[in-house]
């Protein structure tokens, strides 16, 4: 699949992190959009189409898992990769049970992330 066509939604409250990651993804030919919280992320998904969502688990307001549930209601087939600063796999496995494709721990290794994105897209 051509990278230029892949649209990524990045939902994370940490702006510095999200903007830098978005820039790096764009450098790799992806289209990356940022949402600062669960609610704005969900509204973006409702109005635009994305190929994949990168979702932070620890967010103020609507948290990652609840956002994931909402996303799955809107679009069951939209692949979601969870990002967590949390050291445990608890949130990750819980998310995967709900329907997330996979989860990665912060700080991220960009190569791993790209690999997972590719896997998720190819899976679709």
């Amino acid at each position: 699949m051509n990278n230029e066509k892949i649209k990524i939604l990045l939902i994370d409250d940490e702006e510095e992190f999200a903007s830098t990651l978005a820039e790096r993804l764009e450098l790799r030919g992806y289209v990356a959009k940022i949402a600062k919280g669960g609610e704005s992320g969900i509204s973006l998904i409702a109005h635009e189409s994305f190929d994949i969502v990168l979702l932070d688990l620890m967010m103020p307001g609507l948290n990652g898992l609840d956002t994931l549930k909402q996303i799955k209601i809107i679009n069951k087939h939209l692949p979601v990769i969870l990002l967590t600063g949390h050291g445990s796999v608890q949130g990750g496995t819980e998310g995967m049970r709900i329907g997330a494709f996979d989860f990665l721990m912060k700080p991220l290794d960009i190569k791993k992330l790209i690999k997972k994105i590719q896997l998720a897209i190819n899976n679709e």
């Binding site: 940490e14 790096r24 450098l27 600063g85 912060k106 700080p107």
Partner: peptide
């Protein structure tokens, strides 16, 4: 300690990563 450090660490990681990307390009 870990909680407080993890977020800045993620940012440092991305910033350094971006620097690397930019240097590469």
């Amino acid at each position: 300690v870990a909680h407080e450090i993890n977020n800045p660490l993620a940012i440092i990681n991305q910033k350094a990563g971006l620097m690397e990307d930019l240097i590469d390009l």
